[in-house]
């Protein structure tokens, strides 16, 4: 059975649909990239997959015994209070919270994992700094490290490279790729970076006035894909 099955989803706000008839499946080990224009409903779809919103109709089903606590998530924007006192360490460690259940304290393994992800994101020098005093790109890296701490089987990323410099962007894609290839973690990523999306993804979900779901190769030869790529100026 697939890790995630969405059947005939309709999404919207206050009863008004913004997206209809979305069906797709994600199998363990897939790397799915969701593309589409601004406001087409990508973030809304991701929140629905995570159970943060209810679909207007249709179903989201998980399989393979996937539990909520095995999912890592990078939100598109986090509305953190301007004056929130929280250090980078505390935030990254909070990524392990979902697995704790009723256990009150983090284990040594959790702390090691947090440290490892801080290192992976190049944040060692900032580990004790206050989150609110970091630059936008640095904050994004903190939230990525937190998402990696939460990830066991499935990683959902909403525009992970927005605000990152080219060097960190390339590193980011390499990390996601190695998580996917080496550790077998399933990835669902929203991205406007079509070139990178097509270089790494195994499947593409295009949402907008027409919804398309298929493997990368099929997408490249489909009329929707061709039209979208031409607009984006990506040549294949």
């Amino acid at each position: 059975m697939a890790l995630l099955t969405c059947r005939d989803l309709s999404l919207g706000y206050e009863g008004k649909a913004i997206l209809q008839h979305v069906s797709f499946e994600v199998n363990a080990g897939d790397y799915l990239c969701i593309v589409g224009e601004n406001g087409s409903g990508k973030t809304t779809l991701m929140k629905t997959i995570l159970g943060l919103r209810k679909p207007l109709s249709g179903t989201v089903a998980t399989g393979d015994g996937l539990r909520q606590s095995e999912i890592g998530y990078l939100p598109q924007q986090t509305l953190v209070q301007r004056d929130f006192p929280a250090s980078v360490k505390e935030i990254v460690l909070s990524g392990c919270q979902g697995r704790q259940g009723m256990r009150p304290f983090y284990s040594r393994a959790d702390r090691e994992l947090a440290k490892e992800n801080i290192r992976r994101m190049g944040l060692e020098a900032l580990a004790n700094r206050c989150y609110r005093e970091l630059s936008g790109g640095q904050q994004q890296r903190v939230l990525l490290a937190r998402a990696l701490c939460a990830t066991r089987k499935l990683l959902l990323l909403d525009e992970p490279v927005a605000g990152l410099d080219p060097k960190v962007t390339a590193e980011m894609y390499a990390i996601i790729r190695s998580l996917n290839r080496q550790e077998g973690i399933t990835v669902i990523m929203i991205s406007h970076d079509l070139g990178a999306a097509l270089a790494h993804a195994t499947h593409i979900l295009h949402i907008g006035s027409t919804v398309y779901y298929g493997t990368r190769q099929d997408y490249l030869s489909s009329p929707v894909g061709k039209a979208f790529l031409q607009q984006g100026g990506v040549s294949q």
Binding site: L50, L52, G72, F84, A86, S94, Q97, G98, P104
Partner: peptide, 18 residues
């Protein structure tokens, strides 16, 4: 630790199983 996670980012906490 739960109070911190929920106060800092309730959506993330809910999405990842808290």
């Amino acid at each position: 630790h739960k109070i911190f996670a929920i106060t800092f980012d309730e959506n993330f906490a809910a999405a990842t199983g808290t």
